[in-house]
């Protein structure tokens, strides 16, 4: 009887360890997913911000070369 209980206890420990390992993998997966999600948003927003800033700089540089009356409509 003691031996059976010992085997059951061992099996229960093994099951706990397996569940814990699965949870660790899941957490790792979640971490990987979040890393890609954040990389995705950062890449898109950084690209858009870069275009907006470069566009504003170029606009200012060009506007200086044009007489004001020609760009009053803007």
């Amino acid at each position: 009887m003691t031996a059976v209980l010992a085997v059951l206890a061992t099996l229960a420990d093994a099951a706990d360890a397996a569940v814990a390992a699965d949870a660790a993998v899941a957490t790792e997966d979640r971490g990987f997913q979040w890393a890609l999600v954040l990389a995705c948003w950062v890449a898109v927003l950084a690209a858009v911000a870069l275009v907006a800033v470069r566009s504003a700089q170029r606009g200012r540089r060009l506007a200086r070369q044009i007489p004001e009356e020609q760009r009053r409509w803007m």
Binding site: A52, S55, G59, L62, Q65, I66, Q70, R71, M74
Partner: peptide, 23 residues
Amino acid sequence: LLYVWLLVHRFRVLWLEHRVEDL
């Protein structure tokens, strides 16, 4: 909204480029 905002700015930049080219 972002598209319309960038579109207006890029429209004006290209128009200014044409004016500078003319000058």
